[in-house]
Computed example of a mutant assay.
Amino acid sequence: MKHVCRSLAGALRVVSLGLVLAGVSLTSIAYAQGKDVVVFAAASLKNALDDINAAWEKETGKKAVISYAASNALAKQIEAGAPADIFFSADLDWMDYLASKNLIQPQTRLNLLGNSIVLVAPKDSTVQVSVAQGFDLAAVLGQGRLAMGNVDAVPAGKYGKAALEKLGAWNGVKDKVAQAESVRAALLLVSRGEAPLGIVYRTDAASDPNVKIVGEFPQDSHPPIIYPVALLKASAKPDAQAFLTYMRSAKARPFFDKQGFTFINKPVSGS
């Protein structure tokens, strides 16, 4: 029995740490579970969703508790039983993952946004890069590191690696990559001057005045960047559907447009 208690305590500490790293505490989620809508959203959505949440609260008197982190981390937390009502992913893979586990309400799923990836540098950098087939990114980096989200799990990192492979630049930089736990963490490395270059979403570059875009990746160099959103199977809050409806409304669109997202708002076929 003591062994079981110790194991349970250890598991709870792991879940607690994961949720804190995702930007929301167990206490706030437990409180929200009985009152507010809980949204698990990709880190790159923070600026737009914070504004949308504020507008929704002003209009309705209700609010959402939003936890931001890499989509892979949030999906794994949902799989582990973390209480949430809505999942807003930065790629299709992690929404498909939860769908395969029967953890979303498929009829509510839609592809809401699109995005693009860019190469960023600190705002005072003089670097300019022509991102094209065969470009020598390694030479531009020199002894510096390339900040990216984890290339095996974080959507922005996966898109970035795919683009570099397609353009023939990956082998030259793969040993110079500083992998971060989310795209916003990668952005921060560049913003602080700890990395001379980074690959992030265009919307991330727009959110940080301490970086600037120095190169743009061709749209055909990587899979389409699509942000799906859905209600989770465990959610029974009427306000969750209301917030999802608000996010796809004409009232929310200007906040997404402001950050540079492409507004798709297309239900998934067959859902």
Rank of each mutant, 00 (worst) to 15 (best):
P267A: 05
L8K: 11
V4S: 14
D220T: 02
E194T: 06
L21N: 13
A80F: 06
D257I: 02
K166F: 09
V154M: 04
V154I: 15
P209T: 06
Q219M: 09
P238I: 01
Q77L: 14
V129F: 04
I117L: 14
I199R: 00
N115L: 05
K63E: 14
A54E: 11
L187G: 11
D96A: 13
V65R: 13
V38C: 01
K212Y: 02
A54V: 03
S269M: 10
V154T: 07
V151I: 12
K76H: 05
G168V: 00
L146T: 07
K35I: 03
A9H: 11
T108D: 13
I213W: 03
Q179G: 05
S221N: 08
A186C: 00
R253G: 01
H222Q: 06
K176A: 14
A242F: 05
A9N: 10
G168E: 04
Q128P: 04
A43H: 14
A11P: 11
L141R: 07
A41I: 04
V177Q: 03
L74M: 04
R6V: 10
S25G: 08
L119G: 06
W170T: 02
F217G: 01
I264L: 14
A240K: 00
D152G: 15
A84K: 15
K176T: 01
D51C: 11
S271A: 15
N72I: 07
A195M: 01
D257L: 10
A75S: 03
A75W: 03
